[in-house]
């Protein structure tokens, strides 16, 4: 099955950021396709490389970056990013800023759009 993921919460603050990632990994492991992770609302904070968590904790942005390197599009909404100071300069590798039109294309393309949020 072809999945798209919509993540609406910030990293560390909310379980959604972790569950979305674990879902994506599990789906791929089971042989499904995850085309993209679209970051919306505070979810755009997932893509900032400026985060610097304690070393014994998971690094959420790097985790998304690795997933991006495996071919999953990591996309931050431009309108939500502009409000929150997320720019191309702070984006973690293998992620990009894009528009809500892209989310619409994803919603049309995938078999299931799965939302993680509050």
């Amino acid at each position: 099955m072809k999945f798209g993921i919509l993540l609406k919460e910030g990293p560390y603050n909310h379980q959604a950021a972790d569950t979305a990632y674990l879902f994506a990994k599990a789906a791929i492991q089971r042989g499904h396709q995850v085309t993209s992770v679209f970051l919306y609302n505070d979810g755009v904070y997932n893509a900032t490389k400026l985060m610097d968590p304690p070393q014994d904790d998971r690094h959420i942005a790097n985790r998304w970056s690795e997933l991006g390197g495996e071919g999953v599009a990591i996309l931050a909404c431009i309108a939500a990013s502009k409000r929150r100071g997320i720019t191309d300069e702070v984006l973690v590798e293998n992620s990009e800023i894009t528009g809500l039109g892209q989310l619409t294309d994803i919603a049309i393309d995938v078999d299931r759009l799965v939302t993680f949020g509050d």
């Binding site: 919306y40 609302n41 528009g99 809500l100 039109g101 989310l103 619409t104 509050d118």
Partner: peptide, 15 residues
């Protein structure tokens, strides 16, 4: 949430 949700609705509506 409601406000950004509305922004999403408006974009999707143009598709």
């Amino acid at each position: 949430y409601a406000y950004e949700g509305l922004e999403m609705v408006l974009i999707m509506a143009s598709y």
